[in-house]
Structure formats: C-alpha cells, structure tokens
C-alpha cells in the first residue's frame, strides 16, 4: 500500500514537472497574444495589409526559410539582437500591429521570443502578437505548405 502511495506521488510529481516545463513560455505570454501559424498564413495570403513581421531568432534559419515580407532583426536572446529590434521599431506608432516569430526550437525551449516580446512591451507597443510554433519553423510552417521565402 505504502509503495503504491509512493508511486502515485512520484507519478503526480513527474506530471507536474513535465506540464510546468512544457508550458513555461506559453504561460508567460498570454494565450490571447499568440497567433497560430494557420491564422498568420491566412493573413499573409489575404493580400490585405500585413503586420510587421520580425524574425527574432537565427539568421542562418532565416536565410534558409522565412515568412515572405518578414525581416530578420537578430536573436532576442542577446542584447545585441534586442538593440536591433528596438532600433527597427523605435519610430513606429505604438499601436502598430507587429508579429514576432522564431521557430528555432520547440516552444518551451525558445530563448528568443519572450525577451523580444518583453522589449516591445517595455517600449509601449500595444498590438504585438507572437507566432506560436510548437516544434520548429520547418515542421509547423514550411512542411504545412505555408508561404515561404529564402535568402535575405
């Protein structure tokens, strides 16, 4: 009986740990401020005015594949990347619709989007969305057949 209790406790702890880890980044960016690949792809294909889309991850990944019309501004994980981001948006109205994305790694491991989102928030931007990429840009965007561009 005692062994069963211990096992149950261990199991519950493991579940809590995995859940906490997997949704760490999800919970730190409000779900209402996320945009799905499907919704953004529709927006890109609509022909209407598009948001300013900024890739805040790896340049090497951007060169291989990125969302058409998006710009590379540097990794949000380091200060140099954040400075480039601030410089890119400093002259924009604070209600400008901006979409940040990365896709370097699974969502809960991405080191880039949260700091970039925080930086825009600190500058007073009120209409920022973050592209929710569960696994990586290849799996959740390119392999889905959504519009993709290569190069600079």
């Amino acid at each position: 009986m005692r062994t069963a209790k211990r096992f149950a406790l261990l199991f519950l702890s493991a579940v809590c740990l995995i859940t906490t880890s997997a949704f760490a980044q999800w919970s730190s960016i409000a779900p209402g401020r996320l945009i799905s690949p499907e919704d953004l792809a529709k927006m890109v294909q609509s022909g209407k005015e598009k948001p300013l889309m900024l890739q805040v991850g790896s340049r090497m990944l951007f060169l291989q594949a990125h969302i058409p019309g998006s710009e590379y501004v540097g990794p949000g994980a380091n200060e140099a990347g954040l400075q480039q981001l601030r410089k890119r948006v400093e002259g924009l109205p604070r209600n400008k619709f901006i979409v940040l994305y990365c896709g370097c790694c699974p969502w809960n491991h991405c080191p880039n989007v949260k700091p970039a989102d925080d930086a825009l928030h600190a500058m007073g931007f009120t209409n920022v969305k973050v592209l929710y990429i569960a696994d990586n840009f290849g799996t959740n965007w390119v392999d889905k057949g959504y519009p993709t561009a290569k190069g600079e």
């Binding site: 790896s58 990944l61 291989q64 594949a65 370097c104 696994d135 840009f137 290849g138 799996t139």
Partner: peptide, 11 residues
C-alpha cells in the same frame, strides 16, 4: 549546407 540536408529549420 543546411539546405543540402533538406533544410535545418529547427534545432
């Protein structure tokens, strides 16, 4: 090189 390996679009 990433492209030659089918695209390294995630790490």
């Amino acid at each position: 090189v990433g492209g030659a390996y089918g695209g390294v679009l995630g790490l």
